[in-house]
Each structure stands twice: as C-alpha cells, then as structure tokens.
Simulated assay, not measured.
Amino acid sequence: MMETIRAAFVIARRDFTAIIFSKSFFFFLLGPLFPVLVAIAAGGLGKQVNQDIGRPDFGVAMSTEESRQLVAAHIGLSKSLGDFANLVQLPDENPADTDFASRLNDAADKPLTLIISGTLDNPRITGPPGDLNRWKGRIGLLVQMAQARPTPVDVELDIVTSTGGATKRDRLITAQGGQAILILLTMILAGMVLSNLVEEKTNKIIEILAAAIPMDAIFLGKLFAMLAMALVGITVWASLGFIAIWSLGGQLSNLPVPAVGWPLFGILMIFYFSMAYLLLGSLFLGIGAMATTVREVQTLSMPVTMGQLLVFFIAFSSITKLGEPIEWFATIFPFSSPFAMIARAAQMDNVWQHGLALLWQGMFTLIIIRFSVMLFRRNVMKSGNSGRKRSLLARFRR
C-alpha cells in the first residue's frame, strides 16, 4: 500500500510540474471566460427554481370570515397580477408581544415571509424591512379588494429583524449559487484527465510507466495531479474575482449566509469539488482505457457527457425539494451527491451528514478507479483472458 502511494506521488509530481510550467497553462487560465458568458446567456435554466424562491408564503392571522374574504380577493387579484404568493391560514392571535411573528412561524407548516393580522378595517403586516417594502402595495390592494373599497387601505407595518421565510430564501440563493459554481468548474476541468491519458497512450508513454509502476498508482497519480492543477487554477480565478469585486465596490458581507456558516461552507465547496472531479475523472480514465484514438474518445465520451448533464439537472432541480424523494436520490447517487450536498450545506446546519457523504463518494471513486485499471490492463496491456488465450495459442504453434 505504501509503495503504491509513493509511486502515485511520483506520477502526480511529474504530471503536475509538466502542466503548471507549460505555456498552455496560461491559456487554460483564460478558459473560464467563455463558459461564464455561456452560463449567463443560459440563465433561464434556473427559472423554476427562481419561481420557487420568489413565490413567498404569507400567513393570515385573522378571523375565519375575514380570512375567507382575503383568500377570495387573492384569487381574483391573481388572475390579473399572477399568483404572487401563497396564503397560509394561522390562528387569530393578538400581536401585542414581540414574539408574535416567531410564534406564528412555529405554528405554520412552512417558513413565512410576512404575516397579515389585525382586521380588514385595520390590517397589519409583520416582517423584515425588505419584504415589507416589497409587498405592502400588493397586500394593501388585496385588503382593498376584500373590502370592495374604492379607496386605498392604510396598512400598519410591524418591522422585525427576519423571518423564517426570508432566511429560507436567502439560503436557497446561496445553495443555487454554490451548486452552479461546482457544476461550471467540473464541466470546465474534468475532461482534461481524458485528454491527458489519451495523449500518453498515443505516445506509448503510459506503457513505459506501466512496466515500472503499478497501474493503480499511475491512475491515482494522474487524477490527483490534475486535481492539484485544477485547484491552482481555481485559486487564481477566485483571487481575481475577489479583486474585481473589491475594485467595483462590492461587499461580500451582503451575500446570504449559508446554514453552516461561510468558513465551513468554503471548506465543503473545496471538498465537494474535489470529489466531483475525482468521480468524473476516474470515469474518464475508464473511457480513455477503452479508446485508442481521439475519434473513439469522442464516441465513447458522448453518453457520459449526456449523463453528466442529466445529473446536473437532477441536482439543480432538487434544491427546492429538500427531503423529497428526488432530493434523496440526488444525495445518494454518487455523481450527483457532491452537488446535492453543497445545496444541503447552504440550507441545513448539521455537519455529520457531510462526513458520511464524503466517505461514500471516496469509496465509489476507488471502485471506479479499480474498474478503470482492469479495463486498461485488458485493452492496452493485453492482459486478462484474451491475453492468456493468445499466449497459449502461440505456445501451441511452437
């Protein structure tokens, strides 16, 4: 085991040094500019997620009759303005104490953005300042339609620091952003493992290495060398991004805080990118083991690329479905697990689940590497059953 690790380190150091000090590495650092432009142009893919995030839940803490009138007015208003919110019936309570919003949030099945209370004659909305300014106009119009008044209604505003709904939306935005970054980086960087292996197969370098070093060590070394190169590139891009944000006067403190906090979220981003890269890279190594030419690589990698897009769509669509079957599938399936788990890190504060997920992803990576090594030995080194049959046939002819 130690010999394999030492050999893998030698291969990793060789590949890493050759790539970092090459002239093409500079152009590699410029590569993300084009996918970023494509990602901005294709921003409509997150429309459904944005709708789930942007459609708030309003709690209604009024009498039964007034709540019925408000719901009827909401149905009528939605026909002209669109269904802009969900109305959730809550107990009719006195909002005199400061814990009014938190108690009604606990009584609701889901986090609420605002709470509409009081009466239709004297309506009151409770929520954070940003949400009050955004929705007070429509709520006033809603109360006006419920009363069939010809004149606007004055709505009393009760400002609180935050609500569960606002925190939920902020964390969903962070989950969406973290997942998009992981997907974009994986798409840019993972394919380089395949091109590196095919190039060395064409030059017969890989066969020379295989004669002196175990194939497991070669594959592990190549994977981690490419991962180290990718992390160097990410460090450069992140540094340039922070400099650009600082130069333009942006403030990172205004970003929505994930459930686990920014320091741990940043660490998990690195770990989950590494696991996503290793999983996809080990799969590409298996494809490279079966292919002998660049044309064969393109043919064999096409199903993997389509499957990769499907995995991304599953993980992306599960952001707003925390705890549902599709989200559990995205969490357990190894290739979508890193993306689904980073979304969980933004929305859930329990840390132990990430340790289990990283362990599961690491085990599956080793399984794929072992399978890729078997394919390489069978197709390149001519070992296995076919190799033994040819050897026996040659002996028989002698």
Rank of each mutant, 00 (worst) to 15 (best):
A8E: 10
V10M: 02
A12N: 02
R14A: 12
F27G: 15
F28Q: 13
V38W: 04
V38H: 00
L45E: 02
V49S: 03
D52I: 03
P56A: 10
R68K: 07
Q69A: 15
I75Q: 11
L90R: 11
D92N: 15
D92E: 15
A101Y: 04
R103A: 10
A107D: 14
D109Q: 12
T113P: 02
L114N: 06
L114A: 08
P123V: 12
D131H: 04
G137F: 07
I139G: 07
L142F: 08
T151E: 13
T151N: 08
E156Q: 07
A166T: 13
K168D: 11
A180F: 02
L184H: 09
M192Y: 12
V193Q: 05
L197Q: 09
I208D: 04
A210K: 02
I213K: 02
A230N: 01
V236E: 01
A238S: 12
L255F: 13
V260N: 10
P263G: 02
F271W: 08
G281E: 09
Q298K: 07
M302G: 07
G307N: 03
V311G: 04
F312C: 12
T320M: 13
E324I: 00
Q361H: 00
V380C: 02
K389M: 12
R390F: 11
L393A: 15
R397M: 08
